[in-house]
Simulated scan of single mutants.
Amino acid sequence: MRSFLHGSSFSQVLSTACLGHVMIAFPAANTLYLASIVLGFCLGAQLSLYFTIISELCGLKYYATLQSLGGFASPLGSYLLNVRVTGHLYDRVARRQHTGDGEFVKGELKCMGKDCFRISFLVMSTVSVVGSFISLILTLRTRKFYSQDIYSRFNTCSQAKEAECEVPCT
């Protein structure tokens, strides 16, 4: 039942992150502060749940390797979403703003206003919705497994050791 709860929590965290991104994409008075707090909590929750889900779904035999790969996913996603997607969209909006004069500041195109990153935050919101949907699918697929008593084998082994019986515990 633990992974079912973790998967459900992970989906809720990603849905909340989606709301935080939308709050930044369509700003109102003082929503930037609230959205920053929401996204900060979501990031912390994602990282802690991510490694728990890895250990439960894949086991602990190769946990160090899987944890390293899981840790690599965060900087890789940050690079792809921040540098590739956001940078490209920012430049596109900046070129659209300055179609005639082409105002450059120190060799770079300058974008002004809240429209510069709106599309980027909507893309991140969409990625969060897709991740939330995938997490829900994972939760539904593992619900049957975690509804069983998966610890009965370990309880049987510990009781057998106490009774000094020869029951293989592997």
Rank of each mutant, 00 (worst) to 15 (best):
S128H: 04
Y146S: 10
I134K: 06
S132Q: 13
S132M: 14
T142P: 03
G113V: 07
L138Y: 06
F133P: 06
V129A: 04
S132A: 15
S120E: 04
V130W: 02
M124D: 03
L136N: 09
F117R: 05
S125C: 05
F133Q: 05
F145V: 13
G131Q: 02
L122R: 00
I137W: 05
Q148C: 10
I137L: 08
R141V: 15
Q148N: 11
S128A: 14
M112C: 15
G113W: 04
T142C: 11
R141H: 14
L122Q: 02
R143L: 14
L122A: 03
G113P: 03
V130L: 08
M124E: 02
R141G: 08
T126P: 00
C116M: 03
F117A: 11
F121I: 09
V129N: 01
Q148G: 07
Y146W: 13
S147W: 05
I119S: 12
F117D: 07
F117Q: 06
I134N: 02
S120I: 05
V123W: 01
L138M: 10
F121A: 07
I137R: 03
T142F: 11
T139R: 01
F117G: 06
V123E: 00
I137M: 06
G131Y: 00
K144P: 08
S128D: 02
V129M: 03
M112W: 15
S120G: 09
L136S: 11
L140R: 13
M124A: 09
I134F: 10
I137K: 05
T142N: 12
T142M: 11
G131F: 01
I137G: 04
F133M: 12
I134C: 10
T126D: 02
T139A: 06
I137F: 06
Q148F: 10
L136G: 10
L136D: 08
Y146M: 09
V129W: 00
F145Y: 15
F145W: 14
V127D: 01
S147R: 07
K114A: 15
D115A: 14
M124N: 04
R141F: 15
M112A: 15
R141W: 14
K144W: 12
V130R: 03
V123I: 08
S125H: 00
T139H: 00
I119V: 15
M112N: 14
